[in-house]
């Protein structure tokens, strides 16, 4: 018997299309040959597998889908149960929450009247190009600074400072650029240097350092600095206004 004939006989047996003679023949072969008996068993196993797996796609998909939905609902409920244990709030809690919200509103409202940097800052113009010995970088620095391009101004002023480290004018405008760029720490260093010096920018540097602190909402530090500004200083009046508001 060829393998083809053997498999066709298996197929006829499984699909009940086998004749009495063929059935007897198959039974005989299976009894005599253990290998064929095993082969027939495996063939049946495949037939069973294929009919369950190839023909039931829709039914399987429907069950899988339904299970997924049931599972999602179940697990969401489980999670909510766990969560509600933690955040369950008694009814009076809502009243407390509402009061907190009202207070927050009042606080925010009050807060919004706190002075801010932009309300007080008045940036002076940089004019170095008027002087005869001004080089190309100086012009560029001035242009950038006066057009509020502090990023570029910082670069050019830095270049100017490399050549003239103790130039208080360059330092002062460099400091302002840094505050505008929110480089607070570097700005503080610059203003402290000026504050400790004897240049005409000594008190202006204190004023701008106070603004630097205001921008960072360091109110206390800001107040201390404002009090350091003497009556004769250019920014005294404005500093007093800011101090009052703080």
């Amino acid at each position: 018997m060829t393998p083809e004939e053997k498999y066709e006989l298996f197929e006829r047996k499984i699909s009940n299309e086998i004749s009495i003679e063929e059935d007897q023949l198959l039974s005989q072969i299976i009894e005599d040959d253990q290998a064929i008996a095993e082969e027939f068993k495996t063939y049946q196993e495949w037939n069973s597998y294929l009919s369950s797996n190839l023909g039931l796609d829709t039914e399987k998909a429907q069950l899988a889908n339904n299970l997924k939905n049931i599972s999602d609902t179940f697990f969401t409920k489980e999670t909510q149960k766990t969560k509600s244990k933690v955040i369950k709030m008694p009814s009076w809690g809502y009243a407390v929450a509402a009061s907190v919200l009202v207070l927050l509103g009042v606080y925010t409202f009050t807060k919004s009247t706190t002075p801010i940097y932009n309300d007080f800052v008045s940036i002076p113009e940089l004019s170095i190009s008027e002087r005869a010995n001004t080089n190309e970088i100086g012009k560029k620095a001035e242009e950038a600074f006066n057009s509020n391009n502090y990023k570029e101004a910082e670069v050019f002023l830095n270049q100017l400072l490399e050549e003239d480290k103790s130039n208080s004018e360059y330092l002062f405008y460099y400091g302002i650029s840094l505050v505008e760029l929110n480089e607070f720490e570097k700005a503080s260093e610059v203003f402290t240097t000026l504050q400790n010096g004897t240049s005409i920018y000594k008190y202006r540097a204190i004023w701008f350092e106070a603004l630097n602190q205001l921008k960072q909402k360091n109110t206390d530090r800001c107040k201390v600095l404002l009090e350091l500004i003497p009556k004769e200083a250019q920014d005294y009046q404005t500093a007093q206004e800011l101090l009052e508001e703080l």
Partner: peptide, 17 residues
């Protein structure tokens, strides 16, 4: 078709064995 089917399952049978 029946013959082909039996050959294909026969092939699977050999493979798995």
């Amino acid at each position: 078709v029946r013959k082909k089917k039996s050959l294909c399952i026969g092939q699977l049978t050999k493979m798995v064995q």
